[in-house]
């Protein structure tokens, strides 16, 4: 039992941190520009594919640095030449723009790299067992993923709260006009934040690519969960996104580990018409859990766990 709890916790935290790497960018972009970026998970996918392409040519480690930068550049370009133009037409147009962009990126990825999963591997230097606990091994690559995610969180937090750039970004979140009056170039800040958000998602893609599967469907598989994370955490709240990411990561992993069903709690005979429902275990419900949470949070606390505004 202790073994199951330990490893579920490890896996859950890891998954949660990965979610946070993407959700942080998404929620920052949202709070700044009011745009729900549907294409955010596509930047994650681009990160994985860029990482794959670079690792194939010059190795994994250069890819770890170059791929997020490339994705960030793509993100900045998208903001500069796409979103900024659409911005004049209002939020609905922006939403539709990012929605379309997600499909365009997916199709382009399929055209370049094909529909099959690509063989993206982690570096051989991380191909060993990190530790052994209760006779179960934990691969070093997963520890590496975890540490990258934690490092990124620390850097991001320090950047936002301890530096001048962070101060301006925080000010632009709430008072964009005032920041512009003070002589700062707000559109450029927007572009940088969008680019940085995309780069973070790209970084998540680079490190998640070898462990999960690098395939054209990876954006569509992850996209909906991201929205759950930022809504549950509270739109625009970075701390909220962090808490919600971990919460959902742990929730999903622990749900898989549980075998309870209504039949076990209330006895094997089900009320009429509920026969199927009676035998469904929590493990089977694991993939739906985040969405159940989403619905509950929206009913009980529409602003999310740490959000301050309703929208």
């Amino acid at each position: 039992m202790l073994q199951l709890i330990t490893f579920s916790a490890l896996n859950g935290v890891l998954y949660g941190m990965l979610l946070f790497m993407m959700a942080s960018g998404l929620t920052l972009i949202f709070s700044m520009m009011g745009v729900l970026n549907f294409a955010h998970a596509s930047f994650y996918m681009l990160g994985a594919y860029f990482g794959f392409e670079i690792s194939r040519r010059i190795g994994f480690w250069p890819g770890l640095v170059l791929a997020p930068l490339l994705v960030g550049a793509v993100g900045a370009l998208v903001e500069r030449y796409g979103l900024r133009r659409v911005h004049r037409l209002g939020h609905v147009s922006e939403l539709l723009f990012t929605f379309g962009l997600a499909f365009v990126i997916e199709e382009m990825v399929q055209m370049v790299w094909g529909k099959l999963p690509v063989d993206y591997r982690g570096p051989p230097s991380l191909d060993f067992v990190a530790f052994r606990l209760f006779d179960t091994t934990y691969p070093a690559y997963r520890m590496f993923m975890l540490s990258v995610a934690v490092a990124m969180f620390v850097v991001l937090l320090a950047l936002l709260t301890r530096t001048r750039v962070g101060l301006i970004i925080q000010a632009a979140l709430t008072h964009p006009d005032m920041v512009a009056m003070l002589g700062h170039n707000v559109p450029r800040i927007f572009m940088l934040v969008f680019g940085a958000g995309a780069a973070l998602a790209g970084l998540a893609g680079v490190i998640a690519g070898p462990a999960l599967v690098t395939q054209p469907a990876m954006a569509t598989l992850l996209g909906p969960i991201l929205f759950v994370v930022i809504v549950v955490g509270g739109l625009g709240s970075l701390t909220g996104a962090f808490v919600a990411s971990l919460l959902i990561g742990l929730l999903q992993t622990f749900a898989v580990a549980m075998n309870f069903s209504l039949a076990e709690v209330f006895g094997p005979t089900a009320p009429p018409f509920l026969d199927d429902l009676w035998r469904v275990t929590i493990a089977q419900l694991a993939p739906v859990m985040p969405y159940i949470l989403l619905v509950l949070v929206l009913i009980v606390r529409p602003t999310g766990l740490m959000g301050t505004r309703e929208s």
Binding site: L4, M218, L221, V256, P287
Partner: peptide
């Protein structure tokens, strides 16, 4: 000792399931 059903072709990380088999 275990009887698991998981979603079809949607799981990209089986680590949680393997932890359960192990346990």
């Amino acid at each position: 000792v275990g009887d698991e059903l998981h979603p079809l072709l949607k799981i990209t990380d089986f680590a949680p399931y393997v932890a359960k088999i192990k346990a």
